[in-house]
C-alpha cells in the first residue's frame, strides 16, 4: 500500500520550519508525524499529513520546494521488541533504511513506523509475504493517533 510523505527542502536556519507549520495550520492541514534531517547548512523536513496533495500545493504556492515521496507506513506492535521484528526482517533482506520516524496509534498496542528505504518495491513485497500490515494515505488519515513520538 502506498503512503506519501511531504519532503520539504529548507535551509537550516530559524524561521523555515515556522513558515511550513504556519501555512499548514492556516490551511487546516493536520500533521501526523514529522522528522527533520539536516546537513550543516540545509536539511529536509519530512511530514506525514492528512492531505499530502493539498499540502504540497499550498506550500509550493508559498515558494517552498516540496516533493511527495513514497514511503511505507508499517504497523508495528507498541511493545518491547515490536520495532526490532520489523528491522530484523529488513536487515535479513539487505534493505537499507534511509530515514524513519513513527508515532503511537494505540498505546501499548499499535504504532506506525514510517520508513523511507532504498528498495521500496522489494520492501513492500517482503512485508506482504511476511504478513506485515501497512497503511496507505487514506488509512493513515483515518487512523487516530494516541500521541506523537519521534524515534
Amino acid at each position: 500500500m502506498k503512503a506519501y510523505q511531504l519532503s520539504i527542502f529548507a535551509e537550516n536556519k530559524p524561521g523555515r520550519l515556522a513558515k511550513v507549520t504556519r501555512i499548514l495550520g492556516k490551511e487546516n492541514i493536520n500533521i501526523r508525524a514529522i522528522s527533520i534531517s539536516s546537513s550543516d547548512a540545509f536539511g529536509v523536513i519530512n511530514m506525514l499529513v492528512d492531505d499530502p496533495e493539498r499540502a504540497q500545493k499550498v506550500l509550493s504556492k508559498e515558494g517552498l520546494t516540496v516533493k511527495l515521496k513514497e514511503v511505507i507506513a508499517v504497523i508495528i506492535e507498541d511493545r518491547p521488541g515490536g520495532l526490532d521484528k520489523l528491522i530484523q526482517l529488513l536487515y535479513d533482506e539487505n534493505i537499507n533504511v534511509e530515514n524513519a520516524y513513527g508515532f503511537v496509534l494505540e498505546s501499548w498496542k499499535k504504532a506506525v513506523f514510517v520508513v523511507d528505504v532504498d528498495q521500496i518495491e522489494k520492501t513492500q513485497a517482503v512485508l506482504k509475504k511476511n504478513g506485515v500490515e501497512t497503511l496507505d494515505t487514506e488509512a493513515l488519515l483515518a487512523a487516530e493517533p494516541f500521541h506523537y513520538m519521534k524515534y
Binding site: S7, S39, T65, K69, N99
Partner: peptide, 17 residues
Amino acid sequence: VHKEFFSGDLKQLETLR
C-alpha cells in the same frame, strides 16, 4: 537548487553539494 531537482532526499542533496 533547481526546483525540479529535489527528490525529497537529503542524500541526493549531499551528493550534489
